[in-house]
């Protein structure tokens, strides 16, 4: 059955005697509609629904990686769509629409994080301490411990520790790691979201990864 822009499938399973309803979207992305920005400006219900359907998973992931409270994440997702619709004329097409949406979401998440007071956040000096040290000739001062992540703590426990460590990183580092290494978004997209150069992003990633490695090894070899 073709229902507007969707195909509705009715599948009957003989083994379980159940009738399953499958609702498949067959249209291209809403952004492939040449008039999608104008339609969003006009609050066209069809395009608005398509946008929310398509963008919610990515937007949710970006925000939920930063803000842990699920209710707050839900509020921020909704607020992001609202802000985007209210200022859609500000979108100049210099990035993907989804990148622009995530950038709004990240800014809202940042503001939310600033409202929640944490006392155990690291600062730039803490990050510096976690970087490797070199002598005047540029040689490493100490031998790196032989750490094999496959053999230490179980993976689930390592991931839990990583999450705790990421939450303690200064905001700029946390955002870089979250978007590039957790969300695996392309470098240029992350740089655009954070409004920094790719070179600057690489520096942040480098320092954050060094810090995480150090924290993880320290924890792994002390348990």
């Amino acid at each position: 059955m073709v229902f507007r822009r969707h195909i509705l499938w009715l599948v009957y399973s003989q083994t379980t005697s159940t009738l399953t309803l499958i609702f498949l979207r067959v249209t291209k992305s809403y952004t492939e509609n040449p008039n999608y920005l104008e339609l969003l400006r006009q609050r066209d219900e069809g395009i608005l629904t398509q946008m929310v359907l398509e963008e919610t998973p990515k937007l949710y992931r970006c925000i939920a990686r930063l803000v842990r409270d699920p209710d707050e994440v839900q509020n921020l997702v909704q607020e992001t769509f609202l802000q985007a619709l209210r200022k859609v004329e500000n979108f100049r097409g210099e990035s993907l629409f989804s990148t622009w949406l995530c950038a709004i979401g990240i800014n809202l998440a940042r503001a939310s994080l600033r409202r929640s007071i944490r006392t155990d956040l690291m600062d730039e000096a803490d990050i510096e301490v976690l970087q490797p040290r070199f002598d005047e000739q540029g040689h490493a001062i100490a031998e790196y411990p032989l750490w094999n992540p496959e053999r230490g703590l179980i993976r689930k426990e390592q991931i839990r520790i990583l999450y705790e460590a990421i939450e303690r990183l200064p905001e700029d580092y946390r955002l870089a790691i979250t978007l590039r290494d957790l969300e695996e978004l392309p470098m240029d997209e992350v740089a655009r979201m954070l409004e920094i150069t790719e070179g600057n992003l690489r520096v942040r990633l480098h320092r954050a990864r060094n810090a995480l490695r150090n924290l993880l090894i320290h924890y792994d070899t002390n348990t």
């Binding site: 608005l48 629904t49 929310v52 359907l53 919610t56 998973p57 949710y60 992931r61 939920a64 990686r65 699920p70 994440v73 839900q74 997702v77 909704q78 769509f81 609202l82 619709l85 992540p149 993976r155 390592q158 991931i159 990583l162 999450y163 790691i177 290494d181 957790l182 969300e183 695996e184 990864r209 995480l212 490695r213 993880l216």
Partner: peptide, 25 residues
């Protein structure tokens, strides 16, 4: 460390979030 970061499961929205968002908007 990067592999471990890639290995983390992505958070998934509750199924009703889309409907709630549309009604909110």
């Amino acid at each position: 460390v990067i592999a471990l970061l890639h290995d983390t499961a992505p958070p998934k929205p509750q199924p009703e979030l889309v409907a709630h968002t549309l009604s909110f908007l």
